[in-house]
């Protein structure tokens, strides 16, 4: 036993190394392509642009990462963001402070409802959050009367949100800070580790005395809160908010998390790598845009292909690793 242990632990294996750094490699490859073909790619202005583009869905991806790590999925994030944005827009004129607070609380509340449906009523996460998605979208459209809601962006919050710090867009800073906090939560708090444990083996986590239901609830609340925050920031950035603007956000977030190497079955993945996933998804349309002749639909096709390539690579590596591990046992 002892000798075997030593052999396996001292050789982490190139496979797992590739798996852990794959997303970074893909991102760097994209950047190299961009730098070589488009002189305007590697400019502070363009990079700030990319950051601005990805920040909001990036914040959503952070919450999604917690949910996926816990072995669940949250399809309702786009709708929660939409509802939060509409709420924020409606409140922005008269109550600028409440316009920030209430939507975020509403988002957390909707996340809690997701959590209750999943942990108490034992509805599969996919369905529970699908129902929440329909419900929240419906509410968002009703609140905006089916049109776009005007948002007052003259308040201090909007000013801050739209400003730059030393050329770095403020929402980008918010995203990166949020990600930093998320990394610490994931790695250094009992809640974070519990999420990994639940995703890794829920039954074992229960047996180990972890508060499985509570922590799953928290993950969905976090996800709802992140989505709502993104929605509020959106309302602070644009003078008109339509719930339709948020269609597909949940897919972008899921894609970002999956590209980052997080396993959809839960328990495996690095929070920091979400950054790579988010940036990869933001860089592709940027490059397409620079190329000029292709349109946004082509961007989708290419995004799909990149997504597939990354996933195939990861699954191949994971299978290999499983195989070699099996031999060791």
């Amino acid at each position: 036993m002892d000798t075997k242990t030593e052999v396996t632990t001292n050789n982490p294996g190139t496979a797992s190394l590739m798996q852990s750094e794959g997303p970074l490699v893909a991102l760097l490859a994209l950047c190299v392509v961009g730098t070589v073909f488009f002189p305007t790619f590697l400019t502070p202005l363009n990079l700030a642009n990319i950051l601005r583009q990805v920040s909001l869905t990036g914040i959503v991806s952070i919450g999604m990462a917690f949910v996926i790590l816990s072995g669940g999925i949250d399809l309702s994030v786009g709708s929660i963001a939409a509802l939060a944005a509409v709420l924020a827009a409606n409140l922005s004129g008269e109550y600028p402070f409440l316009a920030v607070l209430i939507p975020i609380l509403a988002g957390i509340g909707m996340g809690a409802l997701n959590g209750l449906l999943i942990t108490r009523m034992k509805i599969p996460p996919f369905i529970a959050t699908l129902a929440m998605m329909l419900g929240a979208t419906g509410l968002a459209f009703l609140l905006s009367d089916g049109e776009s809601a005007p948002s007052d962006t003259s308040g201090w919050f909007s000013q801050v949100t739209n400003s730059d710090i030393l050329g770095v867009p403020c929402i980008g800073v918010i995203f990166v800070l949020a990600l930093g906090v998320a990394i610490i939560v994931a790695k250094h708090t009992p809640f974070g580790r519990s999420v990994y444990a639940i995703g890794g083996n829920e039954e074992a986590a229960r047996m180990m005395g972890l508060h499985v239901n509570r922590d799953k609830m928290l993950a969905y609340m976090l996800s709802g809160g992140c989505a709502a925050t993104a929605g509020v920031l959106y309302a602070a950035r644009y003078t008109a908010v339509s719930p339709g603007d948020f269609a597909g956000w949940e897919l972008t977030a899921i894609a970002a998390v999956v590209i980052s190497g997080t396993s959809l079955t839960g328990g495996i993945g690095k929070m920091a790598h979400v950054l790579y996933g988010v940036l990869i998804l933001g860089t592709i349309p940027n490059l397409i845009n620079k190329q000029g002749t292709l349109d946004s639909h082509d961007a989708n096709v290419i995004t799909g292909i990149v997504l597939l390539a990354v996933i195939l690579l990861q699954s191949r590596i994971a299978n290999q690793e499983e195989h070699s591990l099996g031999d060791m046992a």
Binding site: L134, G135, G138, F141, L142, G146
Partner: peptide
């Protein structure tokens, strides 16, 4: 409004 339908479907 059409959007009630979504809420009802969710329920």
């Amino acid at each position: 409004p059409d959007d009630y339908a979504k809420v009802f479907k969710a329920l």
